[in-house]
Design a protein around this nucleic acid. Structure first.
Lengths: 196, 196
DNA sequence: CTATTTATCTAGCAATGCTAGATATTCTTT
DNA sequence: AAAGAATATCTAGCATTGCTAGATAAATAG
């Protein structure tokens, strides 16, 4: 009798519908519009059901963030494939920015909103680690301290994305900034004395 | 009779007390603890009085942010003074990170929380522009496209600060990341062909 | 068929941002 | 100084939020 299995599947499907609804509303109207009541309406169950799936609202945001990390990782790998060296770097940088700018709500869930997700330490979820490694892969050819340079590359991309998104730096200069970041990585592994 | 003037001063003083209370609570307990009711208690007036000073809660956060910009600007200028060239860059970078990391609530008000403050466009408040120019001053010796490089420098610092603060990159590698950012700026203006 | 566990819902709490309408205070004018 | 006008402030409340206790319905087990 597979009824227990079916129940488990149903439950998983419902959980996925919650996450999908949260994400859809957030993308369309922002995270403030994602209320527990509205999610309950959306999945056609009452509020407390959501709390049998997630500890609290933040845990729902975190679930969306995990989806985001998977997709970001995929997008970065895709961008890296088919090119090498400096071009790969540039393509990855462009893909990162495109991801952050076209899916602001998703990016917020991943990097801005409070979550309990852990990073850069033991117990980091694999979805999160994989994204970092996709960046490290294109950075590695240019340096020996891969972790340091990857973190700095990532931070630069994150900073450019968030400051541009909030209107703090000029959208018109995006390409120049990307070129500067890419060049910084390319140069980082080369000789210390430069240009004479 | 300077009673109108005194009233104006009293009002300004009360407004300042609101902002100071908001900032103090935020620094101590986070922005979630900064409720309008609690601010009203703190200044010993009723809630609606706050709305005669500020349009809404976000406007109070914005007022704290403006204070933050003044202080960040001062900190960056201070850090730049007394050194030149690469050392000035490094000192400014260190000062920026120190600012962001020891005043997380203030930094959030300035860069993370939603505000109506405008940047990088006509109508930008002078407090905000001054901070940018303090960065530009130490970047200028190293490049010709000062605006582009300054924005990228700022973005890198912002990214490093926020990712480190949220535990997404290793605190232990802070100095390495700063060194990389500084070197990237130093190198940015030099010859395009590097290291042979 | 009954008892027990599991799934779900109704109803409500306490807190939030914000505001309408009432009241107290201060100023202006005679 | 008194009456009327304008200003300052408060009380009380709305609508919404995240979350939960306690009641009920459904599924399972004996």
């Amino acid at each position: 009798m597979g009824t227990a299995e079916r129940k488990g599947r149903d439950r998983a499907a419902r959980e996925h519908r919650i996450v999908a609804a949260a994400r859809a509303i957030a993308e369309r109207e922002g995270w403030d519009a994602v209320t527990v009541r509205r999610l309950a309406d959306e999945i056609e169950y009452s509020q407390p059901v959501l709390y049998s799936h997630f500890k609290n609202r933040d845990a729902i945001v975190a679930a969306v963030a995990v989806e985001g990390f998977k997709e970001l990782t995929a997008a970065l790998r895709e961008a890296a494939s088919g090119s090498t060296g400096r071009n790969a770097l540039k393509n990855v940088a462009l893909a990162y920015l495109a991801f952050a700018l076209d899916r602001p709500a998703l990016y917020d869930a991943m990097f801005v909103l409070p979550t309990d997700l852990r990073f850069a330490e033991a117990g980091t979820r694999p979805e999160l680690r994989a994204g970092f490694e996709a960046l490290a892969a294109v950075v590695a050819p240019f340096c020996v301290e891969v972790a340091d340079v990857t973190e700095t590359f990532w931070a630069a991309l994150h900073g450019v994305a968030t400051l541009e998104r909030s209107g703090r730096i000029r959208p018109s200069a995006r390409n120049e900034r990307i070129a500067l970041v890419v060049r910084a990585i390319v140069v980082s592994g080369k000789s210390r004395r430069v240009g004479g």
